[in-house]
Simulated scan of single mutants.
Amino acid sequence: MLTKINRQLRLLTAIICCTIGVQAQQSDTKVKMLGEPAPPLYISNWLKGDKITAFEKNKVYVVEFWATWCQPCIAGMPHLSELAEKYKKEVTVLGVSIHERKETTLPIIEKFVAGMGEKMDYNVATEQGTLMAENWMKAYGERGIPYSFVVDQQGRIAWAGPPKNLDKVLPQIISGTWDIKDAAEKRKEWQRLSVIDNNLVPIMNSLMGNPGNPIGALKRIDSILAKNPELKYYPYTGHYTFYALTKTNPEKAVEFGKEWLKHNDYPRFSTVTDAVTGKDNLPASLYILAADCYQSQLDLYPWSMDFPATYKKMAELYVKAGNKEKAAELLKKADSTEVKKTDH
């Protein structure tokens, strides 16, 4: 069981590194703040759209970082394309490929971009060496993708965060009403809390397992939240809290799980499904929550999911929840998608 828990933690870490910016500040490294001049562009190849050599004054730019292997990146590309079209008179959008795997050559990236078509309808480029990752992501204390920066009319980094939140900030930056100082303070606090959240892993590992020490885990989390209550729904804090609650107070796990998922830009649906699937004697509401999380993964990341196998897992959850009709419906879907899969 400890091996399984460790495997699940490695998966969670991989997802978080893909989707959540994690502070990379070392004791001797100063992380840049919002409001500072935007770094230069270090571009190796332009794959789509216009070449951008420098940030022009009185113009707004979105610089977004992605990779061909990053599922949330791919899922968010249509949304970024919509923003590029909506604000095409005021904003220039640039997607830069970083953190690609060694085997991912330029032709592979070019083929990917071409295949995305209108779903990736903005300027696209690859970085020069690792200079964009170093001078943008690492310099601002980030490493997870997708991640985006907004350069304002004065050439400053006005905002940094997940691309899915651009809707909230772009109108203010375009209109000149965005408060950079306030945003910088909030971001600094978020990064401080992220470090504490990440440091939970070695502390909590010893309390995981079957049965582990879920009561001890919750007490440890409570002691941390007493000093930093804002951590409650952060990725790792939420992950360990949910796991512990499924063993001590399953009904509360449902309530907490729903709130935790809502509070995260890229929810960790796999935490819920891994904690519940295959378990017996849990409340129906917890099984249904896990089934909903499987459905969310099918909706958001269809290319990465085995539909027949997932539908069968969902059916099993609905059987345990006492809804045999829904389970039968899902088994039919599993059979039909299995046939389509075989035909292809």
Rank of each mutant, 00 (worst) to 15 (best):
I173E: 09
I196L: 14
Q153I: 03
W159V: 04
V201C: 00
F149R: 08
A309Q: 12
S27F: 13
Q25N: 09
T13L: 03
M132K: 07
L245G: 10
I52V: 15
A158E: 05
P250C: 10
M1I: 13
Y301M: 01
W159C: 02
E82R: 05
K102V: 14
G209C: 07
P202G: 09
E255R: 10
Y42P: 00
Y236M: 07
Q295C: 01
L261P: 05
W178F: 15
W66V: 02
L166V: 11
K181L: 05
T105K: 15
R10I: 09
N199M: 04
A158Q: 06
P302H: 07
D292V: 06
D343R: 12
K227Y: 08
P39D: 14
K59G: 01
F112R: 03
T337W: 07
K186D: 06
Q295R: 12
H239F: 14
A291L: 03
K86M: 03
I74W: 04
Y318D: 05
K57G: 02
H263N: 13
K313H: 12
F307W: 12
A139N: 10
Y234S: 11
S336C: 00
E325W: 01
V93D: 01
F55E: 06
L286H: 09
T237E: 07
K258Y: 07
N228E: 14
G238Y: 13
S304H: 08
F242S: 07
K89S: 13
G209K: 13
A38T: 08
T177D: 13
P40M: 07
N205K: 15
W159T: 04
C293W: 04
I288W: 02
I145W: 04
A84C: 03
Y42C: 01
E338G: 00
A253T: 15
Y140F: 15
T92H: 02
G21T: 08
Y233P: 02
D265L: 07
L207H: 08
A244C: 10
I74M: 06
Y233H: 15
E56Q: 14
M77G: 04
K51M: 12
W178A: 04
E85R: 12
R143H: 13
T271D: 15
T29P: 00
T3K: 12
A226H: 14
K247D: 14
S206F: 00
I43S: 13
I108M: 11
V195E: 10
K341D: 08
T126L: 02
K48L: 01
I108L: 06
P202M: 07
C293H: 08
A158N: 06
E259L: 05
I16K: 05
L218C: 11
R10K: 14
Y61A: 01
T104K: 08
K88P: 01
R143N: 15
Q297Y: 02
T277A: 12
N198P: 00
I15R: 13
F65G: 01
E185Q: 12
V60L: 04
S304F: 05
A14F: 04
F65C: 00
L47F: 03
T271W: 05
D50A: 12
I145S: 06
G115M: 02
T273F: 07
P171N: 09
Q128D: 15
V113Q: 08
V169M: 06
V254Y: 11
C17D: 13
P107K: 10
R268A: 12
T246Q: 14
I180A: 08
V169S: 07
A321H: 10
K186A: 08
K4P: 00
N198Y: 11
A327W: 02
L34K: 14
P302W: 04
N135E: 15
K332V: 14
